[in-house]
């Protein structure tokens, strides 16, 4: 069994990330200099990680080469400066079925997160106090979980 954490990020301007940055600045979170966002797909399967990544790119279901870049993360936990937002109970059956139909067999589970990376003016990951201030903007605790490094 292998676990792949694929990060799918826009290579065109990300309006949602910019809006989050703007909202944080308006909220008085002044030490944020940039916000980056990507969708994370956490896939457990009986295939080799590289096979899974190749298949995700080839099938173009969660990845569009015209507007996305995809890379595999080493950890299934947030790195410094990151907030991962999960929506418990969200079904990914549709994605799982589509990936299987497209030839990626042996999938055990599919989950997703939204990964937010907050950087300061120098490009350094923001610290925990800043992430805590951003938490309620990026995740509503009534139905979402925010994981912070």
């Amino acid at each position: 069994m292998s676990l792949v954490v694929a990060s799918v990020e826009l290579k065109i301007p990300d309006n949602a990330a910019f809006t989050a940055f703007d909202a944080l600045r308006r909220m008085g979170v002044r030490d944020v200099g940039d916000v980056k966002r990507s969708d994370l797909w956490i896939i457990e399967s009986g295939r080799l990680p590289q096979e899974v990544c190749d298949a995700l790119k080839r099938t173009e279901i969660i990845f569009n080469p015209n507007k996305h870049v995809m890379r595999s993360l080493q950890s299934d936990r947030p790195a410094p400066g990151e907030i991962w937002v999960a929506t418990p109970g969200r079904s990914h059956e549709r994605e799982r079925r589509l990936l299987e139909q497209a030839g990626l067999s042996g999938i055990r589970s599919v989950e997703s997160r939204v990964r937010w990376l907050l950087l300061d003016e120098h490009g350094t990951p923001c610290g925990h106090p800043t992430l805590e201030r951003a938490r309620d903007l990026l995740a509503n605790p009534a139905y979402q979980d925010a994981l912070i490094a």
Partner: peptide
């Protein structure tokens, strides 16, 4: 509002 960016209502709720 704000294209529901982040999630519906989240950004407008922080508008001045």
């Amino acid at each position: 509002a704000y294209e529901d960016r982040i999630r519906a209502g989240a950004v407008a709720a922080r508008d001045p």
